[in-house]
């Protein structure tokens, strides 16, 4: 059997947590808030999801717990940056450090315990199709969840009135405030949504990708998610494309290391990061695209009082 099918399958599994985290961050940044705490929220989501699944034996409950933990982390960030108007960059970095420490502390005794992993969904007829069934209909529910999330986020940003409001706030909170839109409330909701998806992304790591808990197991994926949002010029389709690209090159270089190519392993490990950045920069270098899609108020605090 050719390595093609398992490579595609591993790519999808590698990309799924990035999709969750990056789509959530897309929403957050579109509202004008820059949350650099994804890595921290993912780790806290990972340990929460792992612990909940271990206790209940139910992976679904694990994901709910992961989302809740991520949301709680995001709420801390929201209170600090939106209500107390602290610097978003510094606060986001602090959130990541806090998440790394908190997850390590809580998960100290859980390290090394195994989880059964998550069952794949079976579709009648479709799953048993040759090749197509293995490539498309052979995954755990969260993979399909990530696709549904993509469609939902695209619809929200492009078609819905609430999405329009949020984009307007991201472009100019002062103007949105002067027309009477609740800037603070909408930013809170956006940040909490981003926290929930980051928590789910973390839980996916500890429940599905490698069903166990290890300290710092997100290994920089939160930062990759952040980069995907920026290099994908805040457009959900491109962000997801970037996630699959990253996943694909990650898997490719693992295979390459597996067959013993005469290339330093460090160089291969670097490839996914370099390839993703290079490709996305080439796709999105048009300054007009960037200006039209970048939320103009990104990272700036908003003071509602005039």
């Amino acid at each position: 059997m050719s390595p093609f099918v398992p490579m595609v399958q591993s790519t999808v599994v590698a990309a799924t947590p990035l999709i969750f985290a990056a789509l959530g961050e897309t929403i957050v940044e579109k509202s004008g808030v820059l949350n650099l705490g994804i890595e921290g929220m993912m780790l806290v989501g990972a340990i929460a999801g792992f612990a909940a699944t271990l206790a209940t034996g139910n992976a679904g409950i694990g994901f709910v717990a992961g989302a809740a933990a991520g949301t709680a982390m995001a709420l801390i960030f929201a209170v600090l940056t939106i209500s107390l108007q602290t610097n978003q960059v510094a606060t986001g970095l602090a959130l990541t450090l806090f998440g790394i420490g908190l997850s390590a502390f809580v998960g100290h005794d859980l390290a090394g315990m195994p989880l059964p992993g998550m069952e794949g969904v079976t579709f009648p007829v479709l799953t048993s199709l040759p090749l197509v069934g293995e490539l498309l209909f052979h995954y755990d529910p969260m993979v399909y969840g990530s696709i549904i999330l993509l469609i939902a986020v695209m619809w929200f940003l492009e078609r819905s009135h609430a999405g329009l409001k949020m984009r307007a706030i991201g472009e100019s909170p002062a103007v949105a405030h002067s027309i009477g839109h609740p800037v603070v409330l909408i930013r809170y909701l956006a940040v909490m949504f981003g926290g929930a998806t980051s928590g789910i992304a973390g839980a996916y790591l500890s429940e599905v990708q490698t069903p166990m808990w290890a300290e710092g197991m997100s290994a920089g994926k939160g930062w990759i998610a952040l980069a995907l949002v920026v290099f994908g010029t805040w457009r959900p389709g491109r962000v997801v494309l970037g996630a699959y690209l990253f996943g694909g090159v990650t898997v490719l270089q693992l295979f390459a290391q597996g067959i013993g190519l005469n290339v330093p392993a460090e160089f291969l490990s670097m490839l996914p990061y370099a390839a993703t950045v290079v490709v996305l920069v080439i796709i999105c270098r048009d300054p007009k695209t960037i200006l039209l899609n970048q939320p103009a108020s990104l990272g700036r605090s908003f003071y509602p009082g005039t």
């Binding site: 329009l164 409001k165 472009e171 103007v175 027309i179 839109h181 103009a296």
Partner: peptide, 20 residues
Amino acid sequence: VFQHFSLFETLTVAQNIALA
């Protein structure tokens, strides 16, 4: 009608109006 216009540059006319 504000002196410094309260319009969102990256949105269309209709979207700007719908927002208000």
